[in-house]
Computed example of a mutant assay.
Amino acid sequence: MTGPRLLAFAGSTRVDSLNQRLLDIAAAAARDAGAQVTAIRLRDFDLPLYDGDLEAEAFPARADELRALFIEHDGFLIATPEYNGSVSGVLKNAIDWASRPRAGESLIALPAFRGKVAGIMSASESPFGGLRGLAHLRQILGTIQTMVATEQVAVPHADKAFDEAGLTAPMPKILIPIMVARVVFLAGALRQDARPS
């Protein structure tokens, strides 16, 4: 049986995003641990702000594509910047679109999230490493029926935590492979084709 499929994305669209750098390191670790990782950038989807009227008129094609990617994968690796004590708007918007039901689905079907697992991380220039944003992300994902790995990675003073070779902060370097191993294990255990028929 092949490894679980993980979708990796950051809640930052900035070209030199520290969270994107952190995510890339985690994605590489997940591949080393046997996962099949699909890395995407939310900026490529150019999603409108979620609007019920827009949804009723016509579900945006790019939102449909993103939702399909969520459905196809067994779990997620998500890095979020912390904006005013919470997650970024672009990340929340992507989650909101992906969580919306389509024709014939109930509000609680949540095929993009239910029964899946997420590993979450944050890089922040603050001394707290984005912990408040991670707490909000954990709550959001739990609400839409995604299990969040107990381990998480917070990189404080992130503007000084990377060099050309990668991450230099000692504690996050230790935690990334531990978190990733947990996500890969849980995603493999929870995925549909691993369940008894």
Rank of each mutant, 00 (worst) to 15 (best):
Q20V: 14
A123E: 03
S88P: 15
A194C: 02
K92F: 06
R5E: 00
A56I: 09
D163T: 05
S17P: 13
M171K: 03
V37G: 03
M171F: 09
E164H: 10
G166T: 09
V117T: 15
R67F: 09
D53L: 00
S106A: 13
L42W: 01
N93C: 04
L66P: 13
T38V: 15
D32A: 14
L190K: 03
L47E: 00
L141M: 11
A165D: 15
I71K: 05
F9H: 00
L175V: 11
A165F: 07
L110I: 14
H157T: 12
F59D: 02
A29E: 15
L131W: 02
D96W: 00
A135V: 15
A187M: 02
I176S: 04
F113T: 15
A35I: 11
H157N: 10
G115H: 10
L22V: 11
N84Q: 06
R114W: 01
P48Q: 02
K116H: 08
Q20H: 12
P101R: 09
F128H: 12
A10C: 05
G166R: 13
L23Q: 01
I25E: 05
V184A: 05
R195M: 13
T150D: 10
K92N: 08
I120V: 15
R43C: 11
R21N: 08
A30S: 02
L141F: 09
A98F: 00
